[in-house]
Design a protein around this nucleic acid. Structure first.
Lengths: 197, 197
DNA sequence: TTTCATTATATGATTTTACATATACAATAA
DNA sequence: TTATTGTATATGTAAAATCATATAATGAAA
C-alpha cells in the first residue's frame, strides 16, 4: 500500500515522529493526494519497523511526552526505490457529495443550493490552505529536483480545488436556471418548494 | 456509508440485480465519483435487505444463472431522502501516482517520463469512456431534473480528467525543461541517467 | 480441445480505513 | 477554576474495501 511508501518517502526528507508525520506532512502538505488517519500512521510505523524499513530512537523530554523519532534504513530506501519504479493504479474516486448531486433531482432546489454553498466554502478553505504552503513557484531559481516535484503536485492540488469550485458555480447557475424555467412553467412541480425565498 | 445510498439512489431509477449495479451503474456510469467492488455490492445488498431498505425477487433463467432483482422499499426511499438532506464530508483523495510524483526527484528522468506517459494513456482512456456516456448535454431541451444532475456530475468527471491530462502535460514539460537545464550544467547529476535517449 | 469471456451470485480472508478513547503534562483561554 | 488546546504515543473495535476463489451454464476463440 502507498501509505507505507508515502512514509518512506517522507522519512528520506528528514527523520520524524509519528506526530510530525501526521500534523506536518500529511495534514498540511500532502493531504490533497494521500490522507491518513493518526492511528493508521502509528500502526504502519510499527509494522514498518518490524519489516526493518525504519528504525526509531527515543528522545526523552521532560515537560512533554517522549518522542519516537523514526528514520529510514537502507532496506527501507531499497523498498522505496523499488516502489518508485512500479506503475501505479489510477486514483480511486469517492466523493459522497457527487453521489448526492447525482440524485439531487429528488431534492428541492433550496436544499440543493444550500448543499452547494456549504461544499463551496469547504473547498475554498482547502484552496486557501494549499496556496499558503511554502513551496517555491515553478519559475523560481531555487527549484531543485525535489522541489520541482513538490511544486508540481501542489499545483495539482490547487488546480483540482479551483476546478471543483468552478464546477460548483456551474451547478449553482444550472440550478438557478432550472428554477427560472420552472417558475414560468404553470405545471409547477414540487422541486420549487421553498426555493422562491 | 455512501455505497448504501448510492445503491438506494440507483434503485430509484429502476430495479436491478447486483450484477447490473456493478457492470452498468458503477463501472460504466458513476465510477468517477464512487467505485465499488463486486463483492462489496453483493454484501451491501444483503445488509440492506436485512435492514428492510430493499427487497429482491428471484428471476429464474434457464441457460444462465438466476437473477436476484432488487427494488427499493418505502423504508429505503425514506432513508435515501433523509441522507440526501445531510451535509457530506469532503472527498478523500488517494492517488498513488501523485505520491510517486512527490518523490520523483529520486528517480531518473527517463523513468519519470515513462510513468507520466502511462498515466496519461490511462486517464485519456477514462476520458473517452466518460465522453461516450449517453447523457444529454446541458443545453438539451430533454434535460429534466434528474438528467440535469446526471449531466452535471458527468461534466465533473470529464473536467477532472481533462485537468489531470493538462497537469500531466505540464509535468512532462517541466521534466523536459529540467533535463535541458541539467544538460547545460557540467556538474551533471545521476538524474540524467538514461534520459538522453 | 482447452481456454477464455460473459452472465450471475456468493463466501473466505485479509488489508485498510475510520472512529473512539486512554494517558499525561503544560500552557492558555473562558 | 474549569475547560480546552497542544504535544505525543498507543490500543480497541468496527466498518469498509480489496483480493481471491467457487459455482455453473453458454458460447467464442485460440
Amino acid at each position: 500500500m502507498s501509505l507505507t511508501h508515502a512514509i518512506l518517502g517522507l522519512l528520506t526528507i528528514t527523520p520524524m515522529t509519528g506526530y510530525e508525520l501526521k500534523t506536518q506532512a500529511f495534514d498540511n502538505t500532502i493531504k490533497y493526494f494521500w490522507q491518513a488517519d493518526q492511528a493508521q500512521i502509528y500502526r504502519t510505523l510499527s509494522a514498518m519497523a518490524e519489516q526493518g524499513w525504519v528504525e526509531s530512537t527515543l528522545e526523552i523530554q521532560e515537560d512533554r511526552p517522549n518522542r519516537k523519532v523514526y528514520h529510514i534504513t537502507e532496506a527501507g530506501l531499497e523498498e522505496l526505490r523499488r516502489w518508485l519504479h512500479t506503475e501505479q493504479p489510477l486514483p480511486v474516486h469517492r466523493d459522497p457529495f457527487l453521489v448526492q448531486m447525482f440524485f439531487a433531482g429528488q431534492l428541492d432546489s433550496a436544499t440543493v443550493l444550500n448543499h452547494i454553498a456549504r461544499q463551496r466554502a469547504a473547498h475554498q478553505a482547502l484552496l486557501e490552505q494549499y496556496k499558503q504552503l511554502p513551496v517555491p513557484p515553478l519559475n523560481d531559481p531555487d527549484l531543485d529536483h525535489s522541489r520541482l516535484f513538490w511544486r508540481l503536485t501542489l499545483e495539482m492540488g490547487i488546480t483540482t480545488e479551483k476546478t471543483y469550485l468552478d464546477w460548483l458555480d456551474q451547478c449553482e447557475a444550472a440550478v438557478r436556471e432550472m428554477i427560472e424555467a420552472n417558475a414560468q412553467n404553470p405545471s409547477a412541480n414540487p422541486w420549487l418548494k421553498d426555493s422562491k425565498a
